[in-house]
């Protein structure tokens, strides 16, 4: 029995916990940003490009979405590791983790974007052409804003999944929040309290995301409600 109380032990380990939170948040934010950007671009390509251009992207999206996140993380980590090592570069685990989460997120966002674009009636494109718009202007002023509004709720969903997905990163040796916590637990007997504590932190992070999403939705909504 350790004589140290939960709060005392947490206080003592605060730096490690902060670093854990930072790693998790940093990875999540990067992955969401990169994944959203690449995914939206990919979604547009998959909707409007020629069939043979679409094919490799389609394959990428289906493959990534079809395998567990953990497998994606491991595959990318080991692939990048072996590949870069042959050039004498050592990839930091955090970087590999962010790339892996971004890949998963990109596939998710690409599919979301494609779905949202497909749901926009063809008449919107024609109305844009009729006022003399070129294709790029139609994309930017007409399709993109409508797609983004459509995508917001599922986007929030996928962002929260990404935050939860950061827990996979401990498996490639990144001291994310979960790994840090587990190391702490090994030195005392407050396991339940610690798990409740980090559960609360993940929950708070995702609540912030959902709240932001709801607020954005309210501002952007065009159904008149």
């Amino acid at each position: 029995m350790s004589p140290v109380g939960f709060w005392e032990s947490l206080l003592a380990a605060r730096m490690a916990v902060f670093i854990g939170i930072f790693h998790s948040m940093f990875a999540a934010v990067c992955a969401i940003a990169i994944g959203s950007f690449c995914g939206i671009v990919m979604g547009f390509i998959m909707t409007f490009a020629r069939k043979y251009v679409v094919f490799p992207f389609r394959l990428f999206v289906d493959v990534v979405r079809g395998i567990p996140g953990l497998v994606v993380v491991f595959t990318i980590y080991y692939f990048l590791d072996v590949f870069l090592r042959s050039y004498g570069v050592k990839l930091p685990a955090l970087m590999a983790g962010i790339i892996a989460l971004s890949v998963t997120n990109t596939a998710q966002m690409a599919e979301l974007t494609r779905g949202a674009l497909q749901a926009i009636p063809r008449g919107q494109i024609e109305a844009g052409k009729a006022i003399g718009f070129r294709f790029g202007q139609i994309l930017y002023y007409i399709l993109l804003p409508q797609a983004l509004i459509q995508m917001l709720p599922p986007w929030v969903n996928s962002a929260t999944e990404t935050v939860k997905g950061t827990t996979l990163l401990m498996l490639i040796g990144i001291s994310d929040l979960l790994l840090v916590t587990q190391q702490l637990i090994a030195t005392n007997n407050h396991a339940l309290k610690y798990y409740c504590f980090i559960g609360l932190i993940y929950f708070l992070l995702n609540t912030v995301i959902e709240f932001t999403g709801k607020a954005a939705e309210k501002r952007l909504r065009f159904d008149g409600g």
Partner: peptide
Amino acid sequence: RIIARQRLLTGMVFQQFNLFPH
């Protein structure tokens, strides 16, 4: 590019309005 400019010579009113909902 030129087609887009030529379309400005005509204005189109569609059966389904096709207004931009956003």
